[in-house]
Design a protein around this nucleic acid. Structure first.
Lengths: 157, 157
DNA sequence: CGGTTTGTTCGATCCTTGCCGAACAAAAAA
DNA sequence: TTTTTTGTTCGGCAAGGATCGAACAAACCG
């Protein structure tokens, strides 16, 4: 339940990285601790103690990590506590598919922008058309790429 | 230099989308206006007027859009002003390659986490290994995908 | 030279939001 | 029933950062 300074740095760095990615620092710290804790399961209380954070912050951020599927709860017979661990069956494809939604949202804006224009042949219109073509390409190819990963997972036993 | 309400809504929506993506609302508004302005070039002053924003905000955010390559300046002989337009030669591959750096940063964290662990075979270690494999796959495949796009651009005349 | 145009920069302000602490809830233990 | 454990929720505070306003800069004009 105590950490060496290298692991402590790792946890903070992961917090900063998550922040950069638009998630909260605390959720990055929680995940960071789960990555280097050298134990199968971690309790809520341990997280507040190790990360020196409030219960409310741990509660909120843990819920987010559960929500996006990085973390799974683990309960044991005869134990009241809920423990937490990195999801044994983490679905990376689903996670990335979710992220693709942002790309789709961008693409919709490009299309709508083009529709709202009167001039359909000038520089801006061409820019928008190229943008939708590129994003469309990504939106089409990305799932195929994920499928290739899946297939690679199944056979190479 | 005046906008119908549909375009106004589009611009605000684009601002909100950009905010969601971790960029500033104002940069999204600027880009939104450039998308639907129905003119080849837009001046600094016009942006402050149409978007009802301060010069400082326009200056800062325009600089960012120039920096990431979405927007290009356009100067004309005999004109003092700088005009701005959507980059005629926008390099989408470069833009997405840049975004891939975040994926690489994540992958580095996973690798470092695994290195910091004592237990190398338990659930957390397996999780980290799978994560690095998946991210490694993306990091390898994504540039190939961009190259395919590039090739598709060159031939299909 | 002074005035105007076209921006940039920097300190102040406002808004958002992550985090905290305290109150609350539920369930088990004593 | 009272106490303890294990969290959740909610109001408030403080930090960060996006935007603003004002001062400043540079280039051109008259």
């Amino acid at each position: 339940m105590t950490l060496n300074s290298e692991k402590e740095r790792f946890i903070e760095d992961n917090g900063l990285l998550f922040e950069k990615l638009g998630v909260t620092r605390m959720s990055g710290r929680i995940l960071g601790y789960l990555m280097v804790a050298d134990k199968e399961k971690v309790s809520f209380n341990e997280l507040t103690a190790v990360l020196k954070a409030s219960k409310s912050s741990i509660s909120t951020n843990l819920k987010m990590l559960l929500q996006i599927g990085f973390v799974k709860p683990l309960t044991l017979p005869g134990e009241r506590k809920t423990y937490y661990m990195l999801s044994p069956d983490m679905d990376w494809q689903a996670y990335f598919s979710e992220r693709l939604e942002m790309i789709k949202a961008m693409n919709n804006m490009f299309r709508k922008g083009l529709k709202l224009r009167t001039a359909k042949k000038d520089n801006a219109a061409q820019w928008l058309r190229k943008a939708t073509e590129f994003y469309g390409f990504i939106i089409k190819e990305f799932p195929a790429m994920l499928k290739r990963w899946e297939e690679g997972q199944n056979k190479p036993g």
